[in-house]
Design a protein around this nucleic acid. Structure first.
Length: 197
DNA sequence: CCGGTGATGCCCT
DNA sequence: GGGCATCACCGGT
């Protein structure tokens, strides 16, 4: 793991903020597709909204493993969500990737997301970006230092350009402001309200 | 532009 | 069997 990604070993809330601006590189159709992370949410073990809060299960055990691995789960009968495991082994935490900005391979992304009306609609949601990047249960537990899906450091995003807000689509611990996104970025999924991070 | 809702599979109680 | 870290479509504004 690149030293600049050492923050993954810290708290999920800290890691969620620092993952903004980092890149994901996916090999698809023999091409390298590169995207920038623009929206994240933190899920900690001591958090009623986290899959890890009730303890380890077969599905969630990767959250309790080493940082920098992929926790992929299936939801609503048709969508996958992609998370990056954070913190020390034994503590179940991860960061949900909610939206990314395509950098290269936009043609591949648009082909895989043929219902999207524009490039800004292609990866602006957790289920959408999994469809765009072909992230499925096959990548559950994947080590993100290795192909075909690699996490790479980016230029750190300035604090003033980061917004903090409640998480989306949850029914418990709704008050926690553990969603982070890059202000004014057109690839972010939704704007509920903003606050200085 | 917005809110409501159906689709649809699997995990956990 | 309940509920889900979602999406796309529909109809009313």
């Amino acid at each position: 793991m690149d030293k600049r990604l050492d923050f993954l070993h810290s708290d999920a809330v800290t890691a969620a903020e620092q993952l903004l601006g980092c890149y994901l590189e996916r090999e698809l159709d023999g091409q390298k597709v590169r995207v920038k992370i623009v929206e994240t949410e933190a899920y900690r073990q001591d958090d009623e909204a986290s899959h890890s809060c009730r303890g380890m299960t077969e599905r969630t055990k990767v959250m309790f493993g080493p940082a920098g691995h992929a926790y992929v789960y299936f939801t609503y009968g048709m969508h996958y969500c992609f998370n990056i495991v954070t913190g020390p082994s034994g503590y179940g935490a991860a960061v949900l990737i909610r939206a990314v900005e395509p950098v290269t391979g936009e043609n591949v992304i648009m082909r895989r997301r043929n219902k999207a009306k524009s490039i800004t609609q292609a990866t602006n949601g957790p289920g959408k970006l999994c469809q765009a990047l072909d992230i499925t249960k096959l990548l559950w537990g994947h080590d993100l230092t290795k192909p075909p899906l690699v996490l790479l450091p980016g230029e750190p995003v300035a604090k003033k350009d980061i917004a903090k807000a409640p998480r989306i689509g949850i029914s418990r611990a709704m008050h926690k402001p553990w969603r982070f996104y890059i202000k004014d970025n057109p690839f972010v999924s939704k704007i509920h309200y903003t606050k200085e991070a």
